[in-house]
Computed example of a mutant assay.
Amino acid sequence: MLMIALIVLSSILMSSRTLRRRLHHGDVGGESRQHFETSGIDSLSEPLLGEHDYSERLSALEDIWDDKKKEQFHWTFLFSQLIAQWAQWLANIVLGSGSLIGRLVSLPSTVINRENNRILPPSLSPLQQERHRNLRQRLEVPFDSSKTEHQDALKQLWTLAYPDRKLPGLKSELWKEMGWQGVDPSTDFRGGGFISLENLIFFAQKYPESFQRLLHKDNGIRAEWEYPFAIAGINISFMLAQMLDLQAEIPSSSTGIRFLHLLEQDEMAFDNLYCVAFEMMDAQWLAKRASYMEFNDVLKATRTQLERELALEDISSVKDLPAYNLLR
C-alpha cells in the first residue's frame, strides 16, 4: 500500500512540475500564454478601504466581456489556481497527521506545532536576519508630513505618475485623481506607514508600464465606481505585512517562513511581491466584475491566491511566481 501511494505521489509530482514549468514559460494548451490586460503597520487589523465614507451609489457593470480578455484571464487563473490546489493537496498528503506518508515523512528544516498548527521556523542565516530586521524597521516608520524626506517622496510619486504634468502643492484637489481621498494625501497613510509610499514609488520605477496601466485603469471592462489607486496600494502593503507575519521577530506561519527564503535571495523581495500583488488584485477585480464595495473581498481573494502561489514547489524568487508574468 505504501509503495502504491509513493508511486502515485511521484507521478503527480512529476505532472505538477511539468505543468508548472509550462505555465511559467507561457506554454499552456499548446499556445503561448498572453499577458492581460496602512503611525505603523501594526496599528490596524482590517484593510483601510472599507472605513472611508464614499457615495453609496453603485453602478451596474457591462454584461458582455471582450472575448480576448476572457481568454487571457481564463488561462492565467485556471492553471495558476489548479497548480496551487495540487500543491495544497500534495502537502496534505505528505504532512497530514492522519496519512500514512505523513507519519513516515518529516521535514528536516521545519517543525509543526500541533497545538496551534503553526510552524516553528528553522534558524535564520545572518543574511536573512539582517534583511528581515531591515524590513521590519521600514514597517515601523509612520508617514510624517513634517519631514522633508517624506514630502519629497510624495512629490516623486506625482512626477512618476504624471511626468508631463505640473507638480501641485502638497495639498491640492489634483491628488484625488491618483486615488487619494482628499486634498491632503498625508492623511490617508495611517496604518500603511511610509513603506506603502515607498512601495508605490518602487512600482512606478521598476515596472512603469504596469504602474501606468493600473493607475489609469486601461484594461478590461471597468466598474464606474472603481477602486482608488493610491488607497488600494496602501491596502496591499498592509495586507502583505500581515500575510507574511512580519510583525513577529521571526515569522512562524508557513507563508512567512517561505518569504524569508525569497528575502535571502532578493533584498527587495517585499517590494517586488507588492507589485505582483497589485497586478493580481486588479486581475481578480476584473475577473469578479467587482465594484467599490467589494474591494475587501477582492483583497482577501488576492491574499489567498498569493499564498497558494508562494506554496508552490521550485519557488526560489518572486520572479518564479506564475503571477509575476502579469508584470510588464
Rank of each mutant, 00 (worst) to 15 (best):
L58F: 02
G192F: 05
L312Y: 06
D271Y: 01
E130M: 12
M281H: 07
F73K: 02
L157T: 01
I93F: 09
T148C: 02
Y207E: 03
Q72R: 15
P108H: 08
D188Q: 00
D297N: 11
N235L: 01
A91C: 14
S125G: 00
E209L: 15
N113K: 14
G169H: 10
T159L: 10
K166V: 10
M281L: 12
T148G: 02
N219C: 10
V105H: 12
M293T: 06
A287N: 13
V298L: 13
Q88T: 15
E62M: 05
K70Q: 13
T255W: 00
Q265C: 04
N325S: 09
E130S: 05
N325M: 06
Q181C: 09
R103T: 13
Q305M: 09
L263N: 01
R303S: 12
V111I: 11
G233V: 08
A230K: 02
S15C: 05
S109H: 03
N219P: 07
T304V: 13
G193L: 03
S80A: 14
D271C: 02
D144H: 07
Q151D: 00
L170E: 06
R165S: 04
L100A: 13
T148M: 03
S125W: 09
E46Q: 14
A161L: 05
V298I: 15
G193R: 01
W175H: 03
D297E: 11
L262R: 06
Y54S: 08
F203N: 00
L104E: 02
L160T: 01
M268N: 07
L2P: 08
F203H: 02
D66A: 04
T38A: 04
D164F: 05
R190K: 07
K155D: 00
S80V: 06
Q129A: 05
Q81L: 11
E279T: 14
K300L: 12
N113C: 12
G193I: 03
S43F: 03
R308L: 09
G256F: 06
L286G: 02
P163A: 05
N199Y: 01
Q85H: 12
L262W: 03
E279Y: 10
E249A: 13
F278Q: 04
I119F: 08
R114N: 08
S146H: 10
V94I: 15
R103I: 08
A290D: 04
W285C: 00
D218C: 13
A283C: 11
P122M: 02
H35S: 07
R114E: 12
V8H: 10
T304N: 14
H25A: 04
L48C: 05
E209G: 05
V276P: 02
G98P: 11
Q284V: 11
L23E: 06
D266M: 06
F270V: 06
R22T: 08
R133I: 07
E198I: 07
V141E: 03
L82Y: 15
S39W: 10
L160I: 02
S55Q: 09
S172Q: 07
L104C: 02
E209I: 15
G191W: 10
F229Y: 08
Y292W: 10
Q151Y: 02
Q284W: 12
R213W: 03
G193E: 00
K319I: 12
Q88V: 14
D314W: 12
L124V: 04
Q247L: 15
W75L: 12
A5P: 12
E37T: 14
L6Q: 14
S11C: 04
S317V: 11
T304C: 07
S16K: 15
E307A: 08
V105G: 00
M178A: 10
Q305R: 14
N134K: 09
P121H: 05
Q247N: 12
L215C: 01
